[in-house]
Each structure stands twice: as C-alpha cells, then as structure tokens.
Simulated assay, not measured.
Amino acid sequence: MSPTSEGARASQPRRVLLTVHTGRRDIVELARSSAARLQDGGIVVRLLDDEATDLDIAGAEVVPADEKAALDTEIVMVFGGDGTFLRAAELARYTDAALMGVNLGRVGFLAETEPEAVEETLQAIERCEYSVEERLAIAVDVIDAEGTVVGGTWALNEVSIEKAERSRVLDVVISIDGRPLTSFGCDGVLCATPTGSTAYAFSAGGPVVWPDVEALLLVPTNAHALFARPLVTSPNSVLTVTVPADGNRARASADGRRMVDVPDGGRVDVRKATRPVRIARVHAATFGDRLVAKFGLPVRGFRDARHAGPGHELYTSRNVLTRGVITGGGDVVAGGEAAGAGSHEDA
C-alpha cells in the first residue's frame, strides 16, 4: 500500500454497525448507551433502516438492511441472542467487518460478551484491542435429478436437509466425496461447521468441535438405521445428501433462516465456503471456558461433590485442579500441596 493510500485510509472515520433485537426495551437502552459511548470516542455509528426508528440514536448513519450494510465498517456489533447474531452474519458475510456479540439471549454461544462486560468491550473497540477469528462457513448447492444447480445458500452453523411432510419418513442416501456411504430413513440430516457443533448438531447428538478445528460434520436426526452415527470429515470433503424421486419431499434450511426446496430425486452438496466469517474477540477466555460457562458444566470432580439437592452442587467455581479438601460440613481446608488453595477460592 502506498503512503498516499495509507493516509487516505487513516483519514476515513471508523464505523461500527449496530444490529439490535429491538423487541426488548432493556436491549434498546443498552444499544443506545453503547452508541453514545462509541460516538464520544469519535466512531461513527451506523444503523439498519428497519431498526433506526426504534433505536432513535441522534447522529447515526442509516442504511438499508442488505448486503451493502456493513461495507466500510470495522465491526458489526450485535445486541441480542444467537438469532440476532446469525442475522448480523448475513450482513457482514461479504465484507471485511468482524462480528462482535453482546449476549442478551438465553445461551448466546456465538456472542462472547455478557451485558455486565459491555464497558470493557467498548473500550477494547475504541483502542483496537481485540483479535479476530476466522470461522469456517459452508456453501450449499441444491441440484436436481438432471444435475442442474437450481438453488444455493450458505451457513455459519449448519444446513438441515429435512422432510417437508411431518407424517412421513425422509429417505436419504449419504455420499462423501462422490462415493455412496450409506442410506436410511430419518427426520433429516445436518451438515454443520465446528461453530455450529454446539447448536442444532449438538442437540441431535453430534460432537462438540473446537471452532479452530477445520472440519465438516454430518449428523443424522432420528435415523432408522444401525449405522447412523455422526461423521467428522475433512474440510475439503463434499457432503452429499440425495433424496430418492419416490420418497418424501425435502427442503434445505440454512441456519434456520434461509430455505431452499430440494427437487424430487435431487441432492444437496455441502462444502467449505471460500470465504470465512470473521468474529472479533475481546476476552481471553478459551472455548473450553465458554463451554463451562454457557452449559453450567460441573468441573470439580464427582468425589468432591456435596449436594444440596439435584442441580445444586456446592462451590461450583472450584475444580479438580484447584481444589482443597471439603469436609462433611462444607468447610474447606488445604490439602497436599494446596496450602495456598485459599488463593483459588475466587478463581
């Protein structure tokens, strides 16, 4: 890049696009206060035209909610749950903007920031003190019986090839890299990314895959077969789900947001997309830390557990690596090399 172009880029104001679940007053208020903080720091705040009236943020840019909404923005900041995050991903998909989520939903696995940490997140944006992860996305082609591509989409989490009629079983043939592998009747088949492994695929019995692992997942749902286990393949593989012409009608649902009908006798090809999704991270917590926090996983070890009833384990912040000895009365005493165990009490 030439000095002239560097100077031109430096002269451009920084922009942050807000995408907000405007159906809740508390979320709207948090978005407004965050916008004011960003504007005070010299950052231009951009809003979507279908949210701007509800947000009512003075001095903000307003743009249509289309594929150009995130152009020239540095961050797409999401206030809401995973559904809002996936909607924002559609806007950031074909730009260099990174997604940064504030979780205001229930689990909110895609968003790393909780409401109480918004101040720290805004400060990190102002100071450019954040890292960007590139997450594998999948490209989806829907092909008819003659081999013609009749539709397509993409997904950050998963594409679900599912039956269109609830009362009937969906017959499918599974192929990997063009070679038939197995066939069975089922409710559907999920082709997921590592990011999506903790979403629909997880609920269907699929494995949890760390997001920096490059892989594709195939998870049958309610299959009538002995060999219908989840599969983890190379990121360069092509996953194919074929629907027989005399079977149930099928459709492909990408992230639960974009739907494409599958023709009779057609197939769905799923492969790694050429363009990843960029997600901004502020906090140092690992993916394992987020698993523990989001799902409330017990990390103390069963021998140390003292319960006040099902689901009420004592001292849930302690784990097998930092524990002292817990007596029958619930007191903690140091044990072994844990003379300094008290220093971990708030870990």
Rank of each mutant, 00 (worst) to 15 (best):
G205Q: 08
P207N: 11
P207M: 11
P207S: 13
V208H: 09
V208E: 07
W210N: 12
P211A: 04
E214D: 12
A215P: 10
A215N: 09
L217D: 03
L218P: 00
L218H: 05
T221S: 09
T221W: 02
H224Q: 12
H224W: 12
P230A: 11
V232Q: 13
S234M: 10
S234E: 14
P235N: 02
P235F: 05
N236K: 13
S237L: 10
V238N: 03
L239Y: 04
T240I: 09
V241S: 10
T242W: 01
T242Q: 05
A245Q: 09
A245E: 14
A245V: 14
A245W: 07
D246N: 15
D246S: 15
G247V: 11
G247D: 03
N248P: 07
N248E: 13
A250R: 08
R251L: 10
A252K: 02
D255S: 11
D255P: 02
R258P: 05
D261Y: 07
V262A: 06
P263Y: 00
D264K: 13
G265W: 07
V268S: 04
V270G: 00
V270S: 02
K272I: 06
R275I: 12
R278T: 09
R278K: 15
R278W: 04
R278S: 09
I279Y: 05
A280T: 02
R281N: 06
R281I: 00
V282R: 09
V282Y: 12
H283A: 10
H283I: 01
G288Y: 15
D289P: 12
R290E: 03
R290K: 06
V292S: 08
